[in-house]
C-alpha cells in the first residue's frame, strides 16, 4: 500500500507547489459565482431561489477545469508508463490520482461554498444543504471526470472531448445535488431522499471511474 500512498503524497505536493493547479479551481468557482449576479441582476430574492443551482454549476465546471491535465504531466515525463507497468493495479493508481485531485481541487470548493453562498443570499438551511451535497457530490464529479482525463491523454486531441463526454455523465449528480439543496429549503420532498440517491451516485462513480479510466489508459494509449 505504501506505493499508492507515496503516489498520493507526490500528487498532492505537485498540486500545491508553484505552478500546480490546486487553487485554480476555487478561483474559477469564485469568478463564475461572482459573475452570475451581474447577469441575473441584484435581485436578492431571485438569487436566493437559484443560489444552489449557481453554486452547483460553478463547482461542476471548476472541478472539471483541470481534469484534462491530470495525466498529461505524467504522460509527458513518462511516469504514466511506469504506473501502467507497476505492480499496483492501474485502477488503484488511477483512483489514488483521482483522490489527490479531489483533495487539491474538490475540497477547496466545498470550503469556499459557504462564503459564496452569502453572496447569493442563501439562508443558513439552504447553505448547509448545498455544502453537504457538494461535499458528497464533488468526488463523483472528479471520479466521473477521470474517464475524460484518461481519454484526453490517450487520444491526440482528447482534451476537447472532456467537456462533451464527461458533462453528460455528471448530469445525474447535478440533478440530485441541486434537488437535495432545494429540498432542504423549499421542496415538499424531505432532504434525505435526493441526498441518498446522490450518495449512491458517488459510490458508483468511485468504482466505475477508475475502472473505465484504467481500461482507457491500458488499451487506448497510442
Amino acid at each position: 500500500m505504501t506505493a499508492l500512498r507515496a503516489l498520493l503524497v507526490r500528487d498532492l505536493r505537485i498540486a500545491l507547489r508553484i505552478g500546480g493547479g490546486a487553487m485554480m479551481g476555487v478561483l474559477f468557482f469564485l469568478t463564475v459565482v461572482t459573475l452570475m449576479p451581474f447577469a441575473i441582476g441584484p435581485d436578492l430574492a431571485l438569487l436566493r431561489r437559484i443560489g444552489p443551482a449557481i453554486l452547483w454549476i460553478g463547482a461542476l465546471l471548476a472541478s472539471l477545469l483541470a481534469l484534462d491535465r491530470l495525466f498529461a504531466a505524467d504522460h509527458d515525463d513518462g511516469s504514466l508508463d511506469l504506473l501502467l507497468m507497476g505492480r499496483a493495479p492501474v485502477e488503484l493508481a488511477v483512483a489514488v490520482k483521482g483522490l489527490a485531485h479531489w483533495i487539491a481541487t474538490g475540497l477547496p470548493l466545498v470550503v469556499a461554498a459557504p462564503i459564496l453562498g452569502l453572496f447569493l443570499n442563501l439562508e443558513p438551511a439552504g447553505l448547509g444543504a448545498v455544502v453537504l451535497t457538494l461535499l458528497v457530490g464533488t468526488p463523483a464529479l472528479t471520479f466521473t471526470g477521470l474517464i475524460g482525463a484518461a481519454l484526453a491523454t490517450a487520444l491526440r486531441r482528447g482534451g476537447l472531448l472532456l467537456p462533451v463526454l464527461v458533462l453528460p455523465l455528471t448530469v445525474p449528480v447535478l440533478i440530485f445535488g441541486v434537488a437535495a439543496s432545494n429540498a432542504a429549503v423549499v421542496g415538499p420532498v424531505p432532504f434525505g431522499t435526493p441526498f441518498t440517491i446522490l450518495c449512491a451516485l458517488t459510490l458508483t462513480s468511485l468504482v466505475v471511474g477508475p475502472f473505465a479510466a484504467g481500461a482507457t489508459l491500458r488499451h487506448g494509449m497510442e
Binding site: 478561483l27 469564485l30 469568478t31 461572482t34 441584484p42 436578492l44 453572496f119
Partner: peptide, 23 residues
Amino acid sequence: YWVWDARLTSVLVMFVMYLGLIA
C-alpha cells in the same frame, strides 16, 4: 450581509483581481 451595490461589487471585483494576481 451582502447586497449587489456598486461600491461593494467594485471592491469585490478588486479582491478577485488580487487573487488572480496571486494565482
